[in-house]
């Protein structure tokens, strides 16, 4: 066993994943057995005004026959930005379902080819699931540019010309996200935006009408009604966060008293 787990970090990583998996499964089972999710699972969660406003904007866009825009950023699924890209795809799925009866189906833009293919696949599977395959348009999942600024340059006209009511920017961005938010601002559309990158979060805090800071981005699925597993994930994250806080505080105290080297 020692041969396989050759260092402390590996064991720690393994334990963390096992704990995260165990907690997620526990909360899914608990919520199902107690029917905690019930008809309105959002009552279990704290209010995040960005999602409240976005859900309202989705309703308005459907009624007014206007378009929603979902920007998935320029991160692929390989490597660190993958988490943000996947949560963006979940949000795309929810938005496409909510706006499926609208005259203008949502449009998804991305700055990475694999993400663009996945966005098309997500839209296609939503329409197939709803029995409306004919409404699917491959051009609604777009590759807008492959470098940060060409991506921004490609998305800006889409926001402006497609008469977008609300944009959700969820994925990996850099500081170029400021240009996308500004494009939305110019046509008075709501921009809900979050990223896994720190520089983008700083820009969004200043520029976006409704920024999603830190892990708020990853709560998007739960707040847009993606299912009990997303809510269970939030409970799991809360517990892990407290464990991390405890470990950091303990480490600081041990260092302060000179026990930790």
């Amino acid at each position: 066993m020692n041969l396989v787990f050759d260092n402390f970090n590996t064991i720690l990583g393994f334990l963390l994943l096992a704990l995260a998996l165990g907690l997620t499964i526990f909360f899914i089972i608990r919520d199902r057995s107690r029917n905690l999710a019930g008809p309105n699972p959002l009552r279990l969660l704290r209010d995040i005004s960005a999602f409240t406003r976005f859900r309202r904007a989705v309703g308005i866009s459907v009624e007014a026959g206007q378009r929603l825009h979902i920007s998935l950023g320029r991160g692929g699924i390989n490597g660190l930005p993958g988490g943000a890209t996947f949560i963006g795809l979940t949000m795309l799925n929810r938005c496409a379902r909510a706006a499926s009866i609208s005259d203008c189906p949502p449009v998804a833009t991305s700055g990475e080819s694999l993400t663009a293919v996945l966005s098309q696949d997500t839209l296609r599977s939503v329409y197939a699931d709803l029995g409306a395959e004919r409404r699917y348009d491959p051009a609604s999942g777009r590759l807008s540019g492959l470098t940060p600024l060409s991506y921004a340059a490609g998305v800006m006209p889409d926001i402006h010309d497609e008469h977008v009511t609300a944009s959700i920017l969820a994925g990996h961005f850099g500081s170029e996200v400021g240009l996308l938010v500004e494009a939305g601002e110019r046509i008075h559309s709501l921009s809900v935006a979050g990223s896994d990158s720190l520089s983008a979060q700083a820009v969004l805090y200043a520029a976006a009408e409704e920024p999603l800071i830190g892990e708020e981005l990853f709560a998007g699925g739960a707040y847009l009604g993606a299912g009990p597993a997303h809510i269970a994930s939030l409970f799991m994250q809360d517990i892990l966060r407290w464990i991390v806080v405890g470990v950091i505080a303990l480490g600081a105290i041990l260092k302060l008293v000179g026990v930790w080297p």
């Binding site: 994943l17 997620t24 994930s233 994250q237």
Partner: peptide, 15 residues
């Protein structure tokens, strides 16, 4: 912030 993002990414990956 990065710890929050990492926890979120773990949750997304596990799902």
């Amino acid at each position: 912030l990065l710890l929050g993002v990492a926890l979120g990414a773990i949750a997304t990956g596990l799902r």
